[in-house]
Nucleic acid binder design. Structure first.
Lengths: 347, 347
DNA sequence: CTGAAAGCGCTTACAG
DNA sequence: CTGAAAGCGCTTACAG
């Protein structure tokens, strides 16, 4: 291993103390223009780049933002694989982070202790939490005193944090409204878990609101749950619906992946979309355009969600912020909009 | 900020020196069972977890593996968004890394200097390089003296590194063979860049090999290039093909995304898949099953590719390995296989 | 078996 | 304007 080039080498080369080198690297004002130039040229000549590990240790700042996802199976890998949503979000995070000279680290977390350990051991400067964790975790995190932003949470105990979300109720509303305007009356709602997932519940409320406004009576039997957001679960729900024999002409779903799985199941059973069923997804993942028929859906800019979340984090960090002294714990609500494609038609 | 809990706090609590605490944390044998237990219980009681930053600095080891992708636009985000391939690969990396108590960092890199800086400043223990970089970068990296594994490279200057790849020629061969066996004779080949991409070239060779074996004459005009692996480029190629008026009944493509874009273009123009055209993709991304018709393709286990690459890296790291002293620079070739779905049929 | 001391590469009051 | 010194939290020869 060729010896690592350190600040002292630069100092020697420039004929100054290593402290002085540190000053110019950090833009501390007290160095004369002349020595500054000397140091700068030495840095260039030696091709020196400072060691973040050492900087982290002495500045107590890592320039790393962490993204935490709940660990269902034994790796976040599995959920990433299954749902493009996470990728888009992460891409946004990564982009903003790197623009600001931060790096991004991702981890799946099974329990609050693990999370705490991770933050401590990596000296994370900020944390983005994706998905729902037990209240205990949030309390645990509070003690860590770093900026935290939560994504898509509605739980009461979460509102002491920054939050980035969308108007889920409006999303459900727009999707349903579209279907009603197309003349549909027997509209099914497909969620993952209507008792545990606040996001789903909100969208469901939007759904029911439209029914009420339109004088369509709500039919409990047209509500379906899939328990997970995967293509396979979508297929299962689709088949279940077919077998149920319920009279239904359209579906509002809580996720594109689910909708796509349902379409697959329908097509397998010789149903035609949108002739036999109209269906609207949620999220507007890029695959919505790939499939045939392309999927009508509620667009949320997930990539942007990641960017906004990271902006918030970075801002808090720069405010010297811990989660408690954070300027204000604001909730940013990003827009949703209906994207009409080929999977819906008038009846 | 509540004072950070350090090794000294534990030492004080246990009534030993902080060195002793370090010994038990690191499993150094020289501590008596008795003190060890004492220390362990103090650690537990105080809820202590060591600071990786400090460990990194003194051990000169970060427990981070880096994944580098070429930066086309201004963020790797863009390529991640466009191509599921990267996600699947990364998922594999992340999984193996975390199983071994490593974290993963990703960066997009525009030039060799940036990369060098990144590795140095984060003290990366190992590096996975995805995609093709100029030779200069590899030479630059060589100096860094950390284990490196390259993915899917054929360039001559790359064979002094570990390499994980697939048999691209066989992939092209299998895809083409399948089509020929279905009775197709006018088969198009769609690559990104047949002069610059070694991967494409190999697959193309497999393609031509089948033609030769089958006594089908090679028609230069049935070779198309898309210049980028995106859905949009696939659509463009599809339209271009339609406009070209070439007589062709089937296509071998170099990527699922491209194939899916082409299908979209064909369907838009009232062509039917697989009745009018048979088409086979490459990679077997999960979307292959989502679309209709589902896509016949060449499967490579990308997730596993990420795992294998990370295994190699970790092994080298544990061998105290730098890139030069690495046990051996081996190339691992992962299997490919044909997956027949609905986008191909006999003529 | 245990601990004092030096060191990893940097930052930052403090004194001059 | 410049530098000596202490410190960030850990590891690891070395001596006892």
């Amino acid at each position: 291993m060729n010896k690592k080039l350190t600040i002292r080498d630069v100092a020697k080369h420039a004929g100054v103390s290593h402290a002085t080198v540190s000053y110019v690297v950090n833009g501390v004002k007290k160095v004369s223009e002349e020595t500054k130039l000397k140091v700068l040229s030495s840095i260039k000549e030696l091709n020196y780049s400072p060691d973040f590990t050492a900087i982290s240790l002495s500045k107590r700042k890592s320039n790393i933002v962490g993204v935490m996802v709940p660990l269902i199976e034994n790796s976040p890998a599995s959920m990433f694989k299954k749902n493009q949503y996470y990728h888009d979000f992460l891409s946004g995070v990564e982009m903003v982070a790197r623009e600001n000279n931060f790096d991004t680290m991702i981890t799946g977390v099974g329990n609050p202790e693990e999370c705490r350990e991770w933050v401590i051991k990596r000296n994370l400067d900020g944390l983005i939490i994706l998905g729902i964790f037990p209240e205990r975790l949030y309390r645990e995190m509070k003690k860590l005193d770093i900026p935290i932003v939560l994504i898509d949470t509605y739980e009461e105990y979460t509102n002491q944090y920054n939050n980035v979300k969308i108007d889920d109720e409006l999303g459900g509303y727009l999707a349903t409204k579209h279907l009603v305007e197309l003349g549909h009356k027997n509209i099914g709602f497909v969620g993952t878990n209507l008792t545990l997932s606040p996001v789903d519940i909100k969208r469901f409320e939007g759904f029911k609101k439209v029914l009420k406004e339109s004088g369509i009576s709500f039919n409990e039997r047209l509500v379906f749950e899939s328990y997970d957001i995967t293509f396979e679960h979508g297929v299962q729900v689709g088949e279940h619906i077919l077998n149920s024999g319920e009279e239904v002409t359209a579906f509002v779903t809580v996720s594109d992946i689910l909708a796509i799985g349902m379409i697959k199941a329908f097509q397998k059973n010789n149903k035609h979309i949108p002739d036999d069923y109209s269906i609207v997804g949620f999220d507007d993942l890029s695959i919505c355009e790939y499939i045939s028929p392309s999927l009508t859906t509620i667009n949320q800019d997930i990539f942007n969600k990641g960017k906004v979340a990271t902006d918030l984090i970075l801002k808090s960090i720069n405010n010297g912020g811990s989660s408690t002294q954070m300027v204000e714990n604001k909730t940013v609500e990003l827009p949703v909009k209906l994207i009409i494609r080929e999977s819906t038609k008038s009846i």
